[in-house]
């Protein structure tokens, strides 16, 4: 059994087990880091697929994303340290059945299809090829992705702003008031 197969099996098991653990552990911080473990296992699998650049950016991006997600998990969930056993699930059997059915349908399609596997080799310097492609033929996709990210950031700030997405235009009933009890969007 070659080294590659051993590495693949170890990383695949790591990805699946840590993905499953995300929904089984009691502590929210551990769930987030378990999800990070799943992402890092998939990033290492990309090294087996001759994608060093994607490995590096997945590694960096996912670590940053999960560390920020930990903050949100701890802020929004009631059991961040896992000191109490917690079971906040609904429809557990239907969800498990849906997951298994999804996997079986996808697996049957994967095994039945005759994939057009190509004999070609990847380019000698994949990173340089990505650079030429992003700034050459795929420039439009690159720019559109950038504008999409900008739109996303503006939408996020509009939705998460304390004064709401309508600003002073409407009067909003809120549980929390920011001191003084004065109302927004008064009489103009």
């Amino acid at each position: 059994m070659s080294m590659e197969i051993v590495v693949f099996v170890v990383l695949a098991l790591a990805a699946m087990v840590s993905g499953w653990l995300v929904f089984r552990v009691d502590s929210m911080a551990r769930a987030t880091f378990s999800l990070l473990g799943s992402f890092l296992a998939v990033a290492c699998l990309m090294l087996l697929l001759a994608s060093e650049f994607l490995f590096a950016i997945t590694f960096l991006m996912m670590i940053g994303e999960m560390v920020i997600m930990v903050l949100y998990m701890i802020a929004f969930m009631m059991n961040p340290a896992g000191l109490n056993p917690m079971n906040m699930v609904h429809q557990p059997r239907w969800a498990a059945a849906a997951g298994i059915v999804t996997f079986l349908v996808l697996a049957s399609v994967i095994l039945v299809t005759d994939w057009p596997v190509s004999e070609a080799n990847p380019p000698a310097d994949v990173t340089a090829a990505i650079g030429h492609e992003l700034l050459g033929g795929s420039m439009l996709i690159f720019e559109t992705a950038g504008v999409t990210l900008l739109t996303g950031m503006i939408a996020v700030m509009a939705m998460a702003a304390r004064r709401g997405r309508f600003g002073d235009a409407i009067q909003v009933q809120r549980e929390d008031d920011d001191g003084g009890g004065h109302d927004h969007g008064g009489h103009h």
């Binding site: 990805a15 699946m16 993905g19 499953w20 995300v22 929904f23 769930a31 799943s38 998939v42 997600m69 949100y72 998990m73 929004f76 969930m77 906040m88 699930v89 609904h90 429809q91 557990p92 239907w94 969800a95 498990a96 849906a98 997951g99 298994i100 999804t102 996997f103 996808l106 697996a107 994967i110």
Partner: peptide, 19 residues
């Protein structure tokens, strides 16, 4: 496909939006 199946199970069974 296995990761997608686990994700479907998790997304359908969790009550919290973040999970």
């Amino acid at each position: 496909a296995a990761l997608i199946g686990i994700g479907v199970w998790g997304a359908l069974s969790q009550m919290s939006i973040v999970m």
